[in-house]
Design a protein around this nucleic acid. Structure first.
Lengths: 179, 179
DNA sequence: CTTGGCATGTAAGCCGTTACATGATTGT
DNA sequence: ACAATCATGTAACGGCTTACATGCCAAG
């Protein structure tokens, strides 16, 4: 599954919740999927265009009028289901923090401690943010059929943030006091 | 810090351990950094060339002879330290599994369960692999100055794999029995 | 009447993967 | 001899980000 078809998932999925303008879609992707997904601005418009050409979305309102709203069509829904069923393909790992720590001998223990502390702090505040988000979303969406699925994505963030905090603490322990 | 300078980190860091051929470097990056970093084939050669032009590495053996070994120079070591000290820049998140689960209402509960089970299995076997790796590396590298840092990178894998297993289990619980 | 936010796109350019092309060496 | 592996590159293509370009509308 190429990157562009994953963009189609985000776009069709967004429109499957409700019809909206390209601009609103862009904001929705950033604000709602932002924890685990990103699409750059320059991808969304061409993808919408391609989906319109293929008949998977339709444009309501003049072609260049302000606020032309896109809606998913029946064939678009079928396409979305098809794409969702394609195998998940992971992108190659590229963790800049671990790359630096791996060469910690060269970087120096002190600087490694700094990196770990800031990673710990970042994960810790992210954890707090996810927990707030979970409570907020439960209040807002707790009754919708989407809720159990939305909850999973936030839970993933919580679990990973906790793991990052525990990992950084353990690493800081091993670097403590030595040298 | 652009991607290409992160490639330079991997290349210079690899050569800081010991001089080697481009081919060996490629394998080292894949096998040793593979858990958290990847470089494609077509990046390593041009990067080595650029580093040679800049005087950060030197080529020992004929320009096109077999087994021309690259070694890091003094200025290369300085450059590596400089690069390691640049701020870590995260790549934008793109988690295909969460993207699918988010639209779980469309994908269907059964298929979501399958995705979660296979994610759980993958994380679980990865966890076992990391634990084996940790033991193996401790035996092989336990006495070197690099060991504490190598250990951190494997620990990160262990913590995250455990988090993934716990998360998937929790999600499967919430999907169980309903509907 | 002007600032800021809504809205829609295009284009340049980097980054990176993959496929292709070539040949040497080593083991069988 | 031949296959596998070591070894070194190039080039095309695609994905994605960023910067640019344009204009409407509402509020102050």
């Amino acid at each position: 599954m190429s990157r562009s078809s994953q963009t189609q998932v985000a776009v069709l999925g967004g429109l499957s919740v409700e019809p909206m303008t390209a601009y609103a879609l862009r904001e929705a992707i950033r604000d709602v999927l932002g924890h685990f997904w990103s699409e750059s601005f320059g991808q969304i418009y061409p993808t919408l265009q391609a989906l319109e050409d293929a008949g998977h979305v339709e444009r309501r309102g003049g072609a260049r009028a302000r606020s032309s709203v896109f809606a998913i069509t029946e064939s678009g829904t079928a396409r979305l289901i098809e794409l969702l069923n394609e195998p998940v393909q992971e992108s190659p790992p590229r963790n800049g923090l671990l790359l630096r720590l791996f060469f910690g001998r060269v970087l120096g223990r002190d600087r490694c401690r700094e990196l770990l502390r800031s990673a710990r702090d970042a994960a810790s505040s992210q954890l707090a943010e996810y927990e707030r988000l979970l409570a907020g979303l439960q209040a807002a969406e707790g009754d919708t059929p989407d809720w159990p699925f939305i909850r999973m994505t936030v839970l993933a963030g919580i679990h990973h943030a906790r793991a990052s905090v525990a990992w950084a603490d353990e690493c800081l322990d091993t670097l403590q006091g030595e040298q």
